[in-house]
């Protein structure tokens, strides 16, 4: 009886380790998947912002909120938070609000330092000069983000699968070692 119970406990532990290892692999893989997805959303939002500035001539807070519509949570938060900061604290410049929003939202997103740099540089121009200059910088940021996105997609194809299989394999290895 006791031997059987011990076997059951061992089996349970093995299953738990397998589950945990696979989960770790999938979490790591989801980082790559999320990164390219969020980059795409960011590009869409910037395109929307561009049209808002170009044709709508909308005020920046409204334009930001409009461009965040139809985009999923972590990325859209960046835009809505900037708009909130801009409307709540009048003395804040667009650049400062944008920087604050980026610093607050960044840890939740799967984006990396290079995108941060691109966005910060873009934010330093937004709302500063005339529409034409802003549009140029928006387009520049989009081009940079697009090249990042192509890279991210390539990385996703390579490393997402690798992490998935490595997680499971590592878990099996640990189980074998502990038997």
């Amino acid at each position: 009886m006791i031997v059987q119970a011990l076997m059951m406990i061992k089996l349970l532990g093995a299953v738990l380790i397998l589950f945990a290892g696979t989960a770790i692999g999938f979490v790591q893989a989801s980082f790559y998947v999320n990164r390219s997805k969020q980059l795409r959303q960011l590009i869409h939002a910037l395109q929307r912002l561009e049209t808002e500035i170009d044709y709508g001539q909308t005020e920046l807070p409204t334009a930001l909120i409009k461009s965040s519509e139809g985009i999923e949570q972590p990325v859209s938060r960046l835009f809505t938070l900037t708009a909130e900061l801009l409307t709540a604290e009048q003395e804040l410049s667009m650049n400062e609000a944008w920087q604050q929003a980026i610093h607050q939202v960044w840890d939740v997103t799967s984006l990396r330092a290079r995108e941060k740099e691109v966005l910060l540089r873009m934010g330093s121009v937004l709302g500063m000069s005339n529409a034409e200059d802003q549009l140029k910088h928006l387009q520049l940021a989009q081009i940079q983000l697009k090249s990042e996105e192509a890279l991210a997609r390539e990385e996703q194809q390579r490393y997402a699968n690798m992490w998935r299989s490595l997680g499971t394999l590592g878990a099996i290895l640990i189980v074998i070692l502990m038997v």
Partner: peptide
């Protein structure tokens, strides 16, 4: 046990090599 470790390590090696690491 050693055979199992060998197989797992071999698969890990192929996976990592395929991904260029």
């Amino acid at each position: 046990q050693i055979a199992g470790v060998g197989i797992i390590i071999a698969i890990m090696h192929t996976v990592l090599k395929q991904m260029g690491k």
